[in-house]
Design a protein around this nucleic acid. Structure first.
Length: 439
RNA sequence: CGGAGCGUAGCGCAGUCUGGUAGCGCAUCAGUCUGGGGGACUGGGGGUCGUGGGUUCGAAUCCCGCCGCUCCGACCA
């Protein structure tokens, strides 16, 4: 994308309403604009990041054997009356009435709907297990939305739902999802830690929330240094596969025996049992939450299937959520400096920014154009007539992992300068070498 | 939901107390110079002062209602 043609409205001054770093930077770098309290429009740069996060989530869900569907945002109240949650959910649920005076709602979550879809079509234990997910906008009418997209009323969530024959099967699925989550967060450059959690209105008795570490996080967290050392992506010895029961067992054991707790559940005695040099504490942001809740919905909604003995039984369910739009803010909280955002390569809106320091200089223009063409759209070309300082500042603010800096001296010598945003490291290279380095 | 605050140009704000021609910085447009970390000069454009009512010769300013947004606390992907 050419910056002169792009809709990327960066702002120099801090908007008055933005209190935390990610919100401030998302507005300043032109990722989002607020349209009303807790509701945001995603601009091209922000949308590219959102789509990249979706892509990683989708890849890991698919790899773990979940299947993607897409359920509507608007639901009929009837389903929620069946499960009993229509009354329980309270004012967080946005209730709507259609022209025929039917009670509708903007979905805050989809347990009822997925259970309804399941019971319509699945009739036998032989079709189990099934895990279905979708990535869809949700609405929860928070009393006090804040922190930009981290705590909006409308937000994009990956929510998945599993159906298993029995408790053992459901627990295996739960562990599989936990592994998929750890891999997903690691790929985004985040240190995530699963922590035992309350189940809240979803119900059930086994639940973990996934907290990522960021200095500005909302809650205080305590954990064993073991979590810092874990690698969920490697293929070598000690690696984890979704498909091997013993791997999942070993993985889950490591996740649950190493100490990890938020301040609400912090256990001082257990904490002090950890060697002092292994104790870690910091601030955390919740970016995911998984639940096992058994037959709560299959039972209340009559979703039974035939077992091997031909007798009907209620499948065991779990649900698995990742706050996709929240992650955009959470990543920024975890990765920024005074100058702006520092995107991990995996979710950056562009692989690199090309900074033409002297727009109008024939050598600079020609070199930039040829570089830009070779990126095939994966670079942001700053072709504005502005001075160098403006371009440096905007590139730092937008957080591109690499900056390819083309100035008159370098261009004359056929060289470009590369700056790595995360480290500030600078290299002088030929255009070919620069492209090779970015890959 | 309890408490507090703010709505004036795209953004950040002053002006409101004490009523009298709507301002400043940045951004923007045209031009000249400049050119490696938000440059300088010259000249322009842009406002139903959130909204409805009231008081007054006269309201951004005083009074009443409404709407929107933000912050603190209790609750959450």
């Amino acid at each position: 994308m050419r910056l002169t043609r792009g809709f990327i409205p960066t702002i120099k001054e801090t908007p008055a309403e933005a209190q935390i770093a990610s919100h401030r930077l998302m507005l300043r770098a032109g990722l989002v604009r607020q349209t009303s309290a807790g509701i945001y429009a995603w601009l091209p740069l922000g949308l590219r990041v959102l789509r990249n996060i979706e892509r990683l989530v989708r890849e890991e869900q698919d790899a773990a054997g979940a299947q993607e569907v897409l359920m509507p945002t608007i639901q009929s109240a009837d389903l929620w009356k069946e499960s009993g949650r229509y009354e329980d959910y309270g004012k967080e649920m946005l209730r709507i009435r259609d022209r025929h005076d039917r009670d509708m709602l903007y979905g805050p979550t989809n347990e009822e709907m997925i259970t309804d879809l399941f019971r319509q079509s699945v009739k036998s234990y032989r079709e189990l297990p099934q895990t279905l997910y979708h990535i869809q906008w949700k609405f929860r009418d928070e009393v006090r939305p804040r922190f930009g997209v981290m705590r909006g009323r409308e937000f994009l969530m990956k929510d998945g739902y599993s159906f298993d024959v029995d408790h053992a099967g459901a627990v295996t699925t739960y562990r599989k999802m936990m592994l998929a989550y750890m891999r997903t967060f690691q790929r985004m450059g985040l240190k995530a830690i699963p922590m035992e959690a309350d189940t809240g209105p979803i119900g059930g008795d086994l639940s973990h929330e996934f907290i990522i570490l960021a200095p500005t996080g909302e809650s205080q967290v305590y954990f064993d240094a073991a979590f810092e050392e874990m690698d969920y992506l490697s293929a070598g010895a000690g690696s984890f596969s979704h498909d091997k029961a013993e791997d999942l067992e070993r993985f889950f054991k490591q996740m649950t025996t190493n100490y990890a707790a938020t301040d609400e559940k912090h256990d001082t005695a257990k904490w002090e049992a950890i060697a002092p040099e292994r104790r870690r504490e910091g601030r955390g942001i919740e970016v995911g939450h998984i639940f096992y809740f058994g037959t709560k919905y299959t039972q209340s909604m009559g979703a039974s299937v035939a077992g091997p003995d031909s007798k009907p039984f209620f499948p065991e369910m779990g649900s698995y959520g990742i706050g996709v739009s929240r992650l955009v803010g959470a990543v920024i909280e975890a990765s920024h400096d005074d100058a702006g955002i520092i995107w991990p390569d995996s979710i950056a809106p562009f692989k690199a920014a090309i900074l033409n320091l002297k727009n109008g200089d024939p050598a600079c223009d020609a070199l930039c154009e040829s570089l830009y063409a070779r990126f095939g759209g994966d670079a942001l070309y700053d072709d504005r007539a502005d001075r160098a300082g403006v371009k440096f500042n905007d590139a730092d603010l937008m957080g591109h992992p690499w900056q390819i800096i083309v100035g008159p001296r370098g261009a004359a010598a056929g060289k470009v300068e590369m700056k790595r945003r995360a480290t500030g490291e600078r290299l002088e290279l030929s255009p070919d070498e620069a492209l090779a380095r970015i890959g």
